[in-house]
Design a binder for these strands. Structure first.
Lengths: 252, 252
DNA sequence: CTCCGGCCTGCCGCGACGTGAGGGTCAAGC
DNA sequence: GCTTGACCCTCACGTCGCGGCAGGCCGGAG
């Protein structure tokens, strides 16, 4: 099986120029040429390109990729394992960022404001960087984003007042439940947890049950959020967290 | 709160040069200067920088970030929502890649070989790109990778023979269980599923219960893998998948 | 008053291609 | 056999997001 640059480019979703570049720096030289000087790639070349693309997507510089691929100690299976581990790591990092965003969202909602140092904690110690083709397509000009934008942008003074009233109302009722000794896994407490979630969904952001339990855990783990609830009523943070968990489980 | 370039750089983990650059292109100009011409950043500048860093990490070009941040329709909460969605998308994509890697691993293990087109299916239609600082630190020179590399690199002819024998042995026993009508959720079938997992762990790669059930689903979803098992014995793919699920649940 | 660390403004360089310019190649259809 | 259009070739300069250095100006500590 022999392929021309164009065919390879199309299959691998890179430009012809990129293949020329890889050839130029000796990272991926086609296994042969036609009499006319056309590049001819074979299956082995394609496999190599696949690996190049993979490491490139994870941000490795070309020079380093050359080293990795030419390592005589690493066979294909080893590459797959390595790639699997790299991906897991990346996912973990992104999940941390998601968690950080959720914290920031809740912080806003509760009007806790983060210190400058806290703002950058998210970025930990590493620094990916991606080519935003997908991002642009998905968010650059979609209706979804416009809608999502409008939702918060258009809060008026009355809206804010309404939100505050609803929250206070909910607050009074859950404190009542807590002081009355209503169990956190009772139908009443669960209903209040669900109301809490609905409140977030209606006014702030889309909060799935999964995200909601994540928030619950955070209320206990993060002293700023714990303090917020404990100031309303001692024991409320834990009570709410428990109710949220119970509610989420019952809906699953 | 006013900060110097150096302080901001340290907090945000960027270089002073980067801040100069952002100033130069007008993306982030400090809110003021000292009489001597020193840049002075305030809290609002920091917040803006945080967002810049975020979108940058997701690969947006600076020009586009400027557009996003200067959009009068998007308030801070909208940005958080957008960022949350972007992250979810990225994670989803990485998870697809993980799945693809797992397929490739299993394909190797079963000696099914993928066509060139299949090799690049992983890359779908987008193309991230990350700066591999983290990757390098984690994998460039760690012991873990060396070990992981060695495992497969050092398979000898006898090893391969041994692997084949073990697999055949296991195959005969599960076919026996299937034809004998042993239920897939019986202790015996589950033990065979566990053995299947152990076989992968011992010789190929680290296969958690989660990954294992993922494989099980794949055996049913992907005709190539289904065929592999169905050729051994009709109904085996489904039988094994069911046993794997039962086994995973019982161990959770 | 003198350091030393931090700040300033240029300005050149680099990695990984993008983007033509200028020209040869090849298969299909007339 | 000849044209046409898609595809290929090799330079070679342009771009983006900074890195890094030169040459010089602050500013507080000793």
């Amino acid at each position: 099986m022999a392929y021309t640059v164009g065919q390879v480019a199309k299959a691998a979703r890179v430009t012809v120029r990129t293949l020329h570049h890889y050839d130029g720096i000796g990272l991926l030289s086609p296994s042969g040429r036609t009499p006319a000087g056309y590049r001819r790639y074979d299956d082995a070349d394609l496999e190599r390109l696949q690996h190049i693309r993979f490491y490139r997507e994870l941000g490795f510089p070309l020079e380093e990729i050359a080293v990795i691929l030419d390592d005589p100690d690493a066979d294909p299976a080893a590459h797959l394992r390595r790639q699997h581990d790299l991906l897991s790591g990346r996912i973990g990092k992104l999940q941390e960022m998601v968690a950080a965003i959720e914290i920031a969202m809740e912080a806003r909602r509760m009007e806790i404001n983060l210190t400058p140092e806290e703002r950058f904690e998210v970025f930990g110690d590493a620094d990916p960087e991606e080519h935003a083709e997908e991002a642009r397509q998905r968010w650059g000009d979609t209706e979804a984003y416009r809608v999502s934008t409008r939702r918060a942008a258009s809060y008026s003074k009355e809206d804010w007042l309404r939100i505050k009233t609803e929250q206070d109302n909910w607050g009074r009722r859950i404190v009542a439940a807590l002081t009355a000794g209503t169990p956190a896994d009772s139908a009443e407490a669960m209903a209040l947890a669900e109301e809490h979630r609905q409140l977030i969904v209606r006014w702030f952001y889309d909060c799935s049950y999964e995200v909601h339990t994540g928030l619950a855990d955070m209320y206990l783990a993060d002293p700023r959020f714990t303090a917020y609830y404990e100031k309303i009523a001692p024991g409320l943070a834990e009570y709410l967290a428990e109710a949220i968990h119970a509610n989420a489980i019952s809906r699953a």
